[in-house]
Structures are given as C-alpha cells and as structure tokens.
Design a protein around this nucleic acid. Structure first.
Lengths: 225, 225
DNA sequence: TACAAATGTGACAAGTATGTGAAAAACAAG
DNA sequence: CTTGTTTTTCACATACTTGTCACATTTGTA
C-alpha cells in the first residue's frame, strides 16, 4: 500500500510479541522486537522507527518510562506510541495518555484490532516532509533544526511544533482549537492563552519573519503566504 | 465562531446520550438524539446532519446496520460517522472500520475526548477552500479573508458574517429578524438599530459595492443581484 | 409641503481579544 | 536536592470590536 513503516515492539512475553510481529508483517510493516526497555532505547538510537508498541508491564524499565524517555528526546518525540496494557490497569492508561501516547490496546486483544489501530495511527500524518523551506526559514524536521537566514535558531519543542504547523499550512488560518490539538497533545487541557504566549516567543525568535505570523482576530493565527 | 454543525446521536441509554448532548452543545454543536435505528433513519430523511454518533449495541437495528444504510444512500454517504462501542466488541470495531466509519470511541469514554474527536472529524473536510465570488468581491470563507477588487479588506467578525449572509442570499431581502438570528446568535437581545450601524460600516468598507447593499424600507436589507 | 417613521451617521463607552513581561510550575539533568 | 530550562499561568496593558445613543437625513404619505 505504502512505503512500509518500521515498528518496534517492546514486549517480554515471546508469545505475544511473535503474534504481533506475525500480524503486522502480514500487513506489510517492518517489525523489530525487543524484550526490555533498555534494549528498546538502544535500538531506537540505532535505527529510526515510526511507531513503538510498548507493553506496560516489563521487567526493569517499564513501558511508561520508555514512553517518557521517547517523548523527552527531541529526535524521537515525533515517533508514535501505542501502549499494550492488561485489563484493570486503567490508571496506567490515563497516565499513558497524558504522556502523549497515540492509542492503547487492552490485553487480551484481537490481532486484527491491533493492526487496524496501528494503521490508524500511522495514517494520521503521512505527509511529513523532512525539510521545509519557507521564505528565509529552513526547517529540518528530522533533526529539529531551524535556520533563519541560514543562521541556526534554537527553538524549544513547543515552538518548533508550532512553527511547523503554521508553515505547513502557510496561508491558512489555524484556529486555536486546531493548534491545541495539533501542537499540544489533544488530551491536555490548556488555557488557550498559552498559545498566545508561545506565538509571541516564536515571533521573537524568528526575527523579521515574526511579522509573517499574522493574528486573525477571533479566529487564530496564520503564516502569511 | 463557525457555522454550527448538526450531529445526530443514536443511543438507547439516556444517561449517555444526555452526557454527549450536553458536552457537544457546550462546544457549539447542534444536537438531536434518538434511541433507535429506525428513528435515526427517519430523522436523517427529515433533516441534514454532518455527523452521526452511533452506538453499536442498540435494540432492533444496530449501529452497524445504520452505518451500512447510511453509506449506501447517496444523499447521506458524505455524512461522517463516529461509533460508540463497549470494550471487547472488537469484531464490531473491525467491521465498523471496513464500512467507512470515521472514528470510534470506546466506552467508557471521557466527554472531552469525544468532543475532540468530533471536532477532528468535522475539520477534515474543511480543507477545501470555499470561495464566494460576487461582483468584484471575493470571500475566502475559511480564512475570513475578503478581497474587494483584489484588494484585501479587513472586516471584523460581525461584518464578515453579515457580508456572507447578504451575499449568500444575493437578490433576496434579509429581514432584520432573520439577520439577528443568523449573524448574531438569536438569543442575544440587541437593538435592531445595531444592524443599521453594522450595515453602514460594511458599506463603507466594501467601497463602491456598498451601493449594492440595498435598504428595503421597513423590511431589511439585500445585496442586489 | 409638512409630518412621522425609518434609516444613516458619528461619537463614545463597555466589552473583548490579544500582546507582553514576569512569576509559578513542571520538567530534566547533574 | 539543586540548578537551569521549558512550559504554563497570570496580571496588566493595549488595541480593536461592538452596541447604543443622539442627532441628521431620507422616505413615504397625507
């Protein structure tokens, strides 16, 4: 169907990981599986994956810890995460979602369901470019680098996502609601004023191009085409 | 903020349907709810909805059957569908996805998540720019941009709504009462003279086309065809 | 023509959205 | 725990919108 995506499975029960691998491969995904958090981190540094399927219950570093590490790592934070959780671990679920997890599946699960969820997650943003050029701004999406008039500019994670969202939709107004969902994880509840603050700082940091981020009163913001 | 979308809720548990209705209405959606598939079908023939939220487990015609009927009906097939499903009904989920369902939410769900998913679904289709062209006036509805003879003209939120309403009904008189409902949310108690003030400001801003907004004495206003 | 009702218009006050700096909170690293 | 960074919140400033009013002008009618 499409360029096959790479999926990392972190699961200590070999029966489950084999089942999952088999079904994902049947659907055309490339899979790798490891049985501990430590190995997962090591693997993630070696190779790039589009999605990680994390078991919550793991010996040593558990799924949530891995998740945190991933989300806090600039180079990994755009990787998708699907959590596997045993019935009754609802607290974990909640925690998981707040960490920016994309979906979760409760064990025991049907392989078909898992595959569908994986497809759904990966479909969400398929058109991710690696390099975005816009006016004098160059964005290296993969490496989270931003250059303004060829001068490297340090942006924080939020500022980066915000800029990418604005620039990718150049010319179109992004409503606050949309930005909240796209830039901040949908499950967080944030004062919409937070957006304004970030816009302000982003404008500052991109210098003269700050003027190209336009306020559309009562609607949202847009990067002028 | 936006033209409010209509949502049909098909759910036999009144607790859930009330919860859902309450939260969606709070977010500005218009909701109708019915407790059976038969009533849903009847309702869909009477009125147009943008999204249907279907419970899978229903007495009589179940959610999937409704879904099938909708997707097979040309007039309805572009309506979006969100499925509500209880845990463990995985087969249903799968079937649902193959039927062209846009998203599903597993019970028990958080109202907030549901609302966010609904917003996300309804936003997907809005990527198509809808432009209104009328004389030398070009209106980019999505971006709230107005060009008069290709020159960008800044309109406030109210002026924008007013212009769109007038131009969309070009040739037909819009009574003050109608404008109050359409442009101002009907509930507000506003002097009708407020309309006149806004008409005046709008006329000024659209320059020579201001003359095309005609006063129909003792009735209302119209944009001349 | 005179009159009353409806509408046009400019000014203003109240309301609302956004900009901005700084403090507080959350977070990561040491 | 402490430190430094990022993120969020808050409070205040500012700029823009909106509704209302008073008065001017127009319109229809007698």
């Amino acid at each position: 169907m499409n360029t096959s995506k790479k999926i990392l499975i972190v699961e200590d029960d070999p029966n489950i990981s084999k089942l999952v691998e088999y079904n994902l491969q049947k659907s055309g995904f490339k899979t790798t599986s490891v049985d501990s958090g430590e190995k997962a981190i090591a693997m993630l540094q070696k190779d790039k994956f589009h999605l990680a399927i994390l078991d919550i219950m793991l010996p040593g570093m558990d799924g949530l810890e891995i998740c945190k590490k991933i989300k806090n790592n600039k180079k990994l934070s755009d990787m998708k995460i699907l959590i596997l959780t045993a019935k009754g671990e609802e607290v974990d679920k909640v925690l998981g979602f707040e960490l920016g997890v994309d979906d979760y599946v409760v064990k025991p699960f049907s392989p078909r369901e898992l595959v569908l969820r994986v497809k759904a997650i990966l479909r969400r943003n398929e058109t991710v470019k690696d390099l975005i050029l816009c006016d004098g701004i160059k964005i290296d999406v993969k490496n989270h680098d931003v250059f303004v008039d060829n001068k490297k500019t340090e942006l924080t994670a939020m500022e980066f996502k915000l800029l990418v969202t604005l620039v990718e939709n150049k010319g179109n107004v992004q409503t606050r609601d949309y930005l909240l969902e796209e830039v901040w994880s949908s499950s967080s509840d944030i004062t919409t004023r937070t957006i304004d603050t970030h816009i302000k700082r982003l404008r500052q940091k991109i210098g003269k191009y700050g003027k190209k981020i336009e306020t559309v009163r009562s609607l949202g913001y847009r990067y002028i085409d």
